[in-house]
Simulated assay, not measured.
Amino acid sequence: MLDGGFTLTHITGYVQPKAEWLARMRAGRFVHHAIVEKDVTVEAEGDAARLVGRIVTDATVYGAHADWRLRLTMDYACEGGAWTALRAVATTR
């Protein structure tokens, strides 16, 4: 589901590589309790697609539990009939 070079850009601007992000998830640094979609659009052209969503994420991040109101942009590519996520960018705007 995630490309080998996948990155997640956090609201702080930090660009986190896939392996580091998944390791922090496994260690309990990021715990997602629920995600509520408010608005989602997808634009696709050929083998590329972009998802833009406004979401509210109920999460505990480094021990701080809050509802995070985010705009999440995710870029995807289709290769060999399979879609994979290349990158995700979370902002608060």
Rank of each mutant, 00 (worst) to 15 (best):
L70V: 09
A59C: 06
E43G: 08
D47M: 14
V42K: 11
A66H: 09
A77D: 05
Y62M: 02
E45S: 11
A66W: 03
T60D: 01
W68D: 00
V40P: 07
G53Q: 06
V61D: 02
Y76H: 05
D75P: 01
L72N: 05
A48V: 15
K38E: 11
T41C: 07
D47T: 12
G53M: 06
D67V: 03
T73H: 05
T73V: 13
V52A: 08
L51I: 13
R71P: 01
T60K: 07
M74S: 09
L51Q: 02
G46L: 11
E45H: 09
Y62E: 01
G53I: 02
T60L: 00
A49S: 09
T41Q: 14
G53S: 14
A48L: 15
E37N: 15
T60H: 01
G53C: 06
R54M: 03
R54G: 04
V40M: 12
T60I: 02
W83N: 09
G63T: 03
R71Y: 08
L70R: 02
E37S: 15
A64T: 10
E45G: 13
A64P: 00
A82L: 14
D75I: 02
M74A: 08
D47E: 15
G53N: 09
V52N: 05
Y62L: 02
A82I: 15
M74R: 09
Y62I: 00
